[in-house]
């Protein structure tokens, strides 16, 4: 279970001028749950996702993954925690341009000093239909293919939690549908906890739970 308790995040824009991105957000996410986070631009969705994933720190408040309070972890421990427990999918994919698709997928596991699990690897490649694109550079892939690579990369270390920041934002409707289906299957088949930030209300409507943010607060 992920517990978010009174999380606040303020951005400082000079002296005596801070803008609250999150203002006392509290909620819980159960293991294996699929949660959509919606809201207008600037409502704090991405900030919430970043803080949830431990790539940003809240100004105040606590985030717990089970018994582990990630907001009090050191940078190194936090990095190791992310590596083993969290997978990210970003809107603009964030693939490493110098690495091929297969290398991009394997990279998180390699960083941890392990080899990718063969069964998981084959499952991901076949499920995401990347078999004939593995040796291509990101620049040689379409948006949908890049996003599928990004999803495979997020899953390769078999994390329990998948955090997606507008994963279909840059995709056409057909590619978006494919990605959406994959994310649903991750949740339903692999029992992964999935948190998806999106603007797409149709997409969010397919889920069971949606958290809506407005001006940094849950409405």
């Amino acid at each position: 279970m992920i517990t978010i308790n009174e999380v606040k995040k303020c951005y400082t824009l000079g002296e005596n001028n801070s803008v609250p991105a999150l203002d006392g957000v509290s909620f819980e996410i159960n293991d294996g749950e699929l949660v959509f986070v919606m809201g207008k631009s600037g409502s704090g969705k991405s900030t919430l996702l970043h803080i949830l994933g431990g790539i940003d720190r809240p100004t105040s408040g606590i985030i717990k993954y089970g018994d582990i309070e990630i907001t009090s972890l050191s940078e190194r421990k936090l990095a190791l925690f992310r590596r083993d427990n969290i997978g990210f999918v970003f809107q603009d994919y964030n693939l490493v341009p110098e690495l091929t698709a297969s290398e991009n997928i394997k990279y998180p596991v390699l960083l941890a000093g392990r080899k990718p699990d063969r069964r998981l690897w084959e499952h991901l490649i076949s499920t995401l239909e990347l078999g004939d694109r593995l040796e291509h550079l990101p620049s040689q892939l379409s948006g949908g293919q890049q996003q599928r690579v990004a999803i495979a990369r997020a899953l390769i270390s078999d994390p329990q939690v998948i955090l997606c920041d507008e994963p279909t934002g840059n995709l056409d409707s057909e590619a978006a549908e494919n990605v959406q289906n994959m994310l649903f299957r991750l949740n339903s088949d692999l029992k992964k906890t999935v948190v998806i930030v999106t603007h797409d209300s149709d997409f969010a409507r397919k889920g069971k739970r949606t958290i809506t943010l407005m001006d940094g607060r849950i409405t």
Partner: peptide, 14 residues
């Protein structure tokens, strides 16, 4: 920085 940012998000230590 974006690439490094991603690598760090993926667990790259200092």
């Amino acid at each position: 920085r974006k690439v490094y940012g991603y690598l760090r998000a993926a667990g790259l230590t200092g």
